[in-house]
Amino acid sequence: MIPGIATEPITLDVQAGIPVRIAPQLGREPAGWLVIWSDAPVQFHALPTVAGELSLMPSTSARVRLVVL
């Protein structure tokens, strides 16, 4: 089963090596995330977090738009 998009696009300014916490309040665990736009090549790695949230580590500094699945 392919998860659907659960949020509107979220715009973030991220810095390399500084974790970003996203709390989408879905009422369930996020299935993942999808970067839909960025102004630089950036990758995110998931970090351990509390239930219902995402904690992501960006590989480089960038402005991004992502959606939570």
Rank of each mutant, 00 (worst) to 15 (best):
M1Y: 13
M1D: 13
M1Q: 14
M1P: 15
I2T: 15
I2D: 15
I2Q: 14
I2H: 12
P3Y: 09
P3H: 10
G4P: 09
G4F: 08
I5H: 00
A6M: 08
A6S: 12
T7I: 02
P9K: 07
P9T: 10
P9C: 07
I10L: 10
T11E: 14
T11F: 00
L12M: 09
L12H: 05
D13Q: 14
V14Q: 07
V14H: 07
V14D: 08
Q15V: 15
Q15S: 12
Q15L: 09
Q15P: 00
Q15A: 10
A16W: 06
G17T: 02
G17C: 00
I18H: 10
I18L: 13
P19M: 09
P19T: 13
V20L: 13
V20K: 03
V20I: 15
V20E: 14
V20H: 04
I22F: 10
I22N: 09
I22T: 10
A23H: 06
A23S: 12
A23M: 05
A23F: 03
P24T: 02
P24H: 01
L26P: 07
L26S: 09
G27A: 10
G27Q: 11
R28Y: 14
R28W: 10
R28L: 13
E29R: 13
E29F: 05
P30W: 05
P30G: 06
A31H: 12
A31D: 15
G32I: 12
W33S: 04
W33D: 00
W33P: 01
L34V: 06
I36F: 02
I36N: 02
I36Y: 00
I36D: 05
W37Q: 11
W37A: 15
S38R: 04
S38C: 02
D39T: 07
D39R: 08
A40P: 01
A40I: 00
A40T: 06
A40S: 11
A40C: 04
V42M: 04
Q43L: 02
Q43I: 01
Q43V: 01
F44S: 05
F44D: 04
H45E: 15
H45K: 15
H45G: 09
A46K: 12
L47I: 07
L47M: 14
T49F: 04
T49E: 10
V50C: 07
V50Y: 09
V50R: 13
V50T: 15
A51S: 13
G52I: 04
G52D: 03
G52Y: 00
E53Q: 15
S55C: 14
S55F: 00
L56N: 07
L56P: 04
L56D: 06
M57K: 02
M57D: 02
M57C: 03
P58S: 01
P58W: 04
P58C: 00
S59H: 02
S59N: 06
S59L: 01
S59F: 01
S59P: 05
T60F: 03
T60L: 08
T60S: 14
S61A: 12
S61F: 03
A62N: 10
A62G: 11
R63A: 12
R63D: 08
R63C: 11
R63K: 13
V64L: 08
V64S: 08
V64N: 05
V64G: 08
R65K: 14
R65D: 05
R65C: 06
R65M: 09
L66D: 01
L66H: 00
V67R: 12
V67H: 08
V67E: 13
V67S: 09
V68G: 07
L69I: 04
L69F: 00
L69N: 01
L69C: 02
L69T: 06
